[in-house]
Amino acid sequence: MPTPDTLRLRSVSKVYGSAARSVTALNQITTEFRAGSFTAVMGPSGSGKSTLLHCAAGLDRPTSGEVLLGDTDLGELDETRLTELRRERIGFVFQSYNLVSALTAAQNVALPLRLAGRRPQPGAVDGALAEVGLAARGAHRPSELSGGEQQRVALARALVTRPAAVFADEPTGALDSKTSRDVLTLLRAVVDRHRQTVVMVTHDPVAAAYADRVLVMVDGRITQELTAPLTAESVALASRGGLSC
């Protein structure tokens, strides 16, 4: 039985355009992301992996099918309620960090709460920064931080509301290998320590191997599913279509 934080997709399709010019980005996707799990989504460019993430996170609406967070059908929510749900129960981490340059790290972390009209609880922002190893950098603006530090601020911002699910779109794509490992270790800790759900889109088999499960997509469909134990080699082979699961 699904928990209140289980995210389910039922026969989800997403079609852009119409008639002869239509493009099917997702084709009848049915899957679920259980609470406290870490799923990586892989596939070639144009396979639909980012569209899957956007529909699952409520950033985009599917053409057909259902997206449910617990018993809540995201398709039945108007834009105001959907925005509220994203602020309260969903966190986002993007490749480009998406920090506000005029704000300090601490102010960026507090931003989701401020936008929701909530005052941060005492210690919440400092605690989120400490969790990602930036306790001493809260007063610094993004231009004063390295790329890895900016991504960790973005992760702290995603975690400060203690969301049910964190969606990460190529979170290590702009980082070097060591900094990537640091960010991936933090995402793994989100799952292991707080039992939150992480869904990550990536091209990198090494990054995908941090997950509990890997979904491989081709032409808008999930063609393979791998489960732990995972290695970068097994993920790379599957993503090239060399493994049947």
Rank of each mutant, 00 (worst) to 15 (best):
A128S: 11
A128Y: 01
A128L: 11
A128V: 02
A128Q: 08
L129Y: 04
L129A: 06
L129C: 04
L129P: 00
A130K: 13
A130Y: 01
A130M: 09
E131Y: 14
E131G: 14
E131L: 14
E131F: 14
E131D: 13
E131Q: 13
V132A: 07
G133F: 06
L134V: 11
L134S: 08
L134R: 04
A135D: 14
A135M: 02
A135H: 10
A136V: 12
A136R: 15
A136P: 06
A136F: 01
R137Q: 14
G138A: 08
G138F: 01
G138P: 05
A139H: 15
A139D: 14
H140E: 07
H140Q: 13
P142H: 09
P142S: 05
P142L: 06
S143A: 14
S143R: 15
S143D: 12
S143V: 13
E144C: 01
E144P: 00
L145F: 10
L145Y: 09
S146M: 10
S146T: 11
G147R: 11
G147L: 05
G148I: 09
G148W: 02
G148D: 11
G148Q: 07
E149K: 04
Q151G: 04
Q151A: 11
R152S: 03
R152F: 07
R152A: 02
V153T: 08
V153P: 02
V153M: 05
V153A: 05
A154I: 10
A154Q: 06
A154D: 00
A154N: 04
A154R: 06
A156W: 08
A156M: 10
A156Q: 12
A156G: 13
R157A: 02
R157H: 03
R157S: 01
R157P: 00
A158R: 09
A158V: 03
L159K: 15
V160Y: 08
V160M: 04
V160K: 08
T161W: 00
T161Q: 14
T161E: 00
T161L: 02
R162D: 13
R162P: 00
R162T: 14
R162A: 15
P163G: 10
P163Q: 10
P163I: 01
P163E: 09
P163V: 07
A164T: 07
A165C: 14
A165W: 00
A165M: 06
A165G: 01
A165Y: 03
A165I: 15
V166Y: 06
V166F: 09
V166A: 08
V166G: 01
F167E: 05
F167W: 03
A168M: 12
D169Q: 06
D169S: 13
E170Q: 11
E170P: 01
P171Y: 10
T172R: 03
T172I: 09
T172W: 05
G173T: 09
G173M: 06
A174W: 03
A174H: 09
A174Y: 03
A174N: 15
